[in-house]
Design a protein around this nucleic acid. Structure first.
Length: 545
RNA sequence: GCGGGUGUAGCUCAAUGGUAGAGCCAUAGCCUUCCAAGCUAAAGACGAGGGUUCGAUUCCCUUCACCCGCUCCA
């Protein structure tokens, strides 16, 4: 399937539009159309229903260490600025970058390190040339000096055996200590002075609280919904009777000022997340991590992403965040990605006690194998925590501890996009002359199909429209249905196929006589006669409601 | 943010320094008894801003968006 066909279908049928399209669009922002809003809502509802509403805390689910409770939250998009300082997002999302005019590469300002060196550039025919003092640079590596040797040799046009002729001076230090880059050789450059001045990249959307707000009132749109759950952990414990282990779920918008939004809705600047923060005893956290990883993977397969295009990828040890004991991505092979590449739908992370501790003590950094509060130059916490006690006291075991967190964090827009890609199907169906015609249909799981059924009068006479309208009205009380009496019935079927409607109900001449209608299946094209009074029950059964 | 490419109707494609054409889709009506049929009607576009020009969709500049490659990817 070519992605542009799906994009065209999404626009033609009203699933997705570019934001502010009449003004030329806005990079990284997308609007859901009349059908798209139904589809995405169904995805979110399915998630909420399966994870929260239908969860039975009285029985042990398959694969779980024990029973657990689930509850929900809906937090604000703008939160106290200190939330983002303690979570680490403030420091992490404020990057200074330098660009190389020659190699067209971009580097993180604080990651480019180098050292002064003096050498003699090889001239024409191997003759000695000009002597130069240059600050050669490289990205941080395990052995920075070796990397610098290579860069310097290449710059001066020397062989490996000439390495002794290089006169190094001083220590290796980041270029952020230099005021002037005119004698700096970029990591991938052939000439000196090609690096631009550092420029700030703010990956969080900044806004101002209050009409007269200045820089002191600066706040941020949340880059993830998770932090709202952590800062409300104590409120939830104190106001409901939940006991650890339990999970808090939240669905909501998040915002990231991505450098390169691309690939349709896959990387958007405004997007919606479906997140669970699951709190458990540290001794059980590894088991819970495995439970949630497997549970979330099977959710996607049950929703229709079964097959080779979906995979579970456990992160390597060196890929893990410093606080994590395990992270897995659920990934989908989107059609717009190069062959063999997968895009992340959801990450399941073992976050340890990092988050709750951060909001108690202040922003944490790794010191050896432990987490300690990051200090500023005065020896005080760089970002001060709330000081509130976010530990948990277990009445039964008489134990106080900081719960560990398992975080299944899913992208609602990415899941919706994956379902769209997966359901896009083309087959051939005979037209009225028996000639095979190409048919495009979206093979949605009926749970997420925007329209569950369409009702047609075969022709506009003999009382058929009236009966169809009556059936339509009855069904509409309990599901999204569509009425269509325009044009030939074959065209109406195709139109429903293209938006993924699982069933079409047609009132024909026989309906007037015996009260039965035809029920057509989207995938098999087969029709069965069903009594119109039994239609609702029949549909509910087939839709698994 | 950088480099390259592309912007004409919802889609696919024309033409033009002087009133921008067509097919499909979509809309309304007629006709039609089961898988995109037919007839009729009406509607619909030069991505945006500026400049040159008597006149710019066409030439120039800027900008925006999309595609590809870098970069980024908590």
């Amino acid at each position: 399937m070519e992605m542009d066909q799906l994009v065209a279908l999404c626009k033609r049928r009203g699933f997705l539009f570019q934001s502010s399209e009449i003004y030329g669009g806005l990079n990284g922002f997308w609007d859901y159309g009349p059908l798209g809003v139904l589809l995405k809502k169904n995805v979110k509802d399915a998630w909420w229903n399966d994870m929260v509403m239908s969860h039975n805390e009285m029985i042990v689910p398959k694969g779980a260490p024990q029973t657990y409770e689930m509850t929900g939250l809906d937090c604000t998009i703008i939160m106290h600025p200190q939330v983002w300082k303690c979570s680490g997002h403030y420091d992490l999302f404020h990057d200074y970058m330098v660009d190389c005019r020659e190699s067209k590469k971009r580097y993180r300002y604080d990651h480019v390190r180098g050292r002064w060196v003096t050498g003699t550039k090889r001239g024409e025919g191997g003759a000695p040339g000009q002597q130069m003092r240059v600050f050669v640079t490289t990205m941080e590596t395990e052995n920075t000096q070796t990397a610098l040797d290579e860069v310097a040799l290449k710059f001066f046009g020397l062989r490996k055996k000439d390495v002794e002729t290089l006169q190094w001076e001083g220590d290796i230090f980041p270029i952020s200590r230099l005021d002037d880059f005119s004698d700096v050789l970029g990591p991938d450059a052939k000439h000196v002075g090609t690096l631009t001045a550092p420029r700030e990249f703010n990956l969080m959307f900044k806004t101002v609280i209050g009409a007269l707000g200045g820089e002191d009132d600066a706040s941020f749109l949340r880059p993830e919904t998770a932090q709202g759950i952590f800062v409300n952990f104590k409120n939830v414990c104190d106001s409901t009777r939940v006991r650890v282990p339990f999970g808090i779920a939240q669905v909501g918008k998040s915002f990231r000022n991505e450098i390169t939004p691309r690939n349709f809705t896959f990387r958007s600047r405004e997007f919606e997340q479906m997140e669970i923060e699951f709190f458990c005893h540290p001794s059980q956290s590894a088991e819970w991590y495995r439970y949630w990883r497997d549970r979330r993977f099977s959710w996607y397969t049950e929703m229709g992403l079964a097959g080779e295009r979906l995979r579970l990828r456990e992160h390597d040890a060196d890929e893990l965040s410093h606080y994590s004991c395990g992270t897995a991505d659920i990934e989908y092979q989107f059609p717009f990605l190069p062959p063999g590449e997968f895009g992340e739908l959801e990450g399941i992370a073992h976050r340890g006690d990092f988050d709750l501790r951060s909001h108690m003590e202040g922003k944490l950094v790794k010191d050896g194998n432990t987490l300690v509060v990051e200090k500023n130059e005065h020896g005080q916490p760089k970002h001060r925590g709330s000081g509130k006690d976010l530990t948990y006291y277990d009445d039964l075991t008489k134990e106080r501890f900081t719960p560990h967190v398992i975080e299944p964090s899913a992208g609602a827009d990415r899941a919706t996009l994956a379902f769209l890609c997966e359901s896009y199907n083309v087959d051939t169906a005979p037209d009225e002359n028996g000639k095979p015609q190409e048919r495009v249909f979206l093979k949605f799981n009926p749970r997420i199909a925007p329209i569950k059924a369409a009702v047609f009068p075969l022709v506009k006479k003999d009382g058929m429209p009236e009966i169809a309208a009556e059936i339509y009205g009855e069904l509409k009380k309990s599901m999204s249905v569509f009425f269509d009496d325009k044009g030939a019935v074959g065209r109406r079927y195709r139109r429903q196929d293209e938006i993924g409607t699982p069933y079409c109900i047609t009132v024909d001449g026989q309906t007037v006589q015996d009260g039965t209608v035809t029920l057509r299946d989207r995938d098999t094209l087969k029709q069965e006669r069903v009594k119109k009074d039994e239609l609702l029950a029949e549909l509910n059964g087939r839709l698994g409601r």
